[in-house]
Amino acid sequence: MAMQLLRGALSVVKWGLCTVGAVALLLTALIATPLQRPNELRSVSDSAKGIDWSTLPPLERFQARDGTWLGFRHYAAKGTDRGAIFIHGSSGSSGTVNHALTHAIAARGVETWALDIRGHGGSGTRGDIGYVGQLEDDLVDFVAHVRKSAPDLPLTLLGHSAGAGFSLRVAATPIMQDMFVRTVLIAPYLGYDAPTNRPNSGGWANPDIPRFLGLAALRKLGIDCCSQLPVLAFAVPPNSERLLTATYSDRLMRNFATRGYRLDLPAVTHPMTIFGGTEDEMMISDKYADTVQALKPSIDVKIIDGVNHMGMVTNPKAVSAIAEDVATRGVAGS
């Protein structure tokens, strides 16, 4: 009997050591896997040409619940009866090319705030966050900050690209839905498995698949470590780190996105509009309507002819259409 117990104990120890060894090998492999940055995507870099930067508001800051100071820009408007909060796309910030759109929205009488999402611009550690869910906490804190000066303005939430994916995540979250009367998604990245994506976002993003899968496997084993490791690189210009975020950690990548478009779209309760461009080199815009309306028929989808991905926030045709939409809808059920 004693020998059987001893053999059983040794078997448990053996398999335990094997498990520890396998986890150690997995950790070593995922840490050693290099992340390759793709070559500069000129359609993104060139989008900054012709923008009037003289109207860019100064960077301001507010303090999030963890004590970190986060950046934002405030576009004041006179005599307004509505407001908007804008979420930039991957790698960007409140001071990048989306300024053309946010300025146009404010010029139409909408009090507008553009936020530097944590991990970007003037907010926190570049390319990383503390935990998945922190971006939602930050947005709740930011809305509370906005409400100090604008307690009653109905707010529209806008997001571009990855910021639109995050805005969809927000719109599907019960605790945050009532903060906004409406959500506008501009050229949204709906998730890795969405039929609206081009491979590697048309050359814009390069994921480290082995590292991503390794971290996912560890989480399934109940080991949530190493999520600060970079898993996604962007095709930003060389030496642009002062303005742009070149890589995302695993936890930033997972948080600055939808939870899955099939999960989030049915959970949306307030009005939502999606804008896309026919020449989008990162997304397949003509698939937006079928993809989202199969899950949420009430979502408006508007496609603008002749506009590419970054043109959705810089091209005068798209900027005018989106700014006019935000300025004329979102109040009293419109």
Rank of each mutant, 00 (worst) to 15 (best):
L6H: 04
L10A: 10
S11F: 11
V12I: 11
W15R: 07
G16D: 04
A22E: 02
V23C: 03
A24E: 07
A24S: 12
L25E: 09
A32C: 13
T33N: 11
L35E: 06
Q36E: 13
R37D: 05
V44K: 00
A48T: 09
I51M: 13
W53E: 07
L56K: 13
T68D: 05
Y75E: 09
K78E: 06
G79A: 06
R82G: 13
G83V: 12
A84I: 09
I85E: 01
F86K: 01
I87T: 11
G89N: 09
S91E: 01
G92T: 12
G92M: 11
N98F: 04
A100D: 01
T102R: 03
H103M: 09
A106M: 03
V110Q: 02
T112V: 08
L115Q: 07
H120R: 08
T125W: 04
G127L: 02
I129L: 04
I129K: 00
G133C: 12
Q134L: 10
D141A: 15
F142I: 11
V146S: 11
L153P: 12
P154V: 07
L155K: 11
T156P: 00
G159D: 02
L168H: 01
V170L: 13
A171V: 00
D178R: 10
R182P: 00
V184G: 04
I186P: 01
A187D: 11
A187Q: 14
Y189V: 07
Y192R: 12
A194D: 03
A194G: 08
G203Y: 05
D208C: 15
P210F: 06
P210K: 08
L213K: 07
A217P: 02
A217L: 14
G222E: 04
G222D: 03
Q228H: 15
L229N: 01
P230S: 11
N239W: 06
S240N: 04
S240R: 05
S240T: 09
L244H: 06
Y248K: 07
D250M: 13
R251T: 01
G260V: 00
L263Q: 15
L265G: 09
P266E: 08
V268W: 02
T273A: 14
F275Q: 00
G277P: 11
G277H: 13
D280E: 13
M283T: 12
I284D: 10
S285Q: 10
K287G: 03
D290Q: 13
K296E: 03
P297H: 07
I299T: 15
K302S: 07
I303P: 12
I304C: 07
D305V: 11
G306E: 06
H309L: 05
G311V: 07
G311S: 10
T314F: 02
N315Y: 09
P316G: 11
V319Q: 04
A323T: 06
E324L: 01
D325I: 00
D325G: 00
D325W: 14
V326T: 05
A332E: 15
G333P: 12
S334E: 05
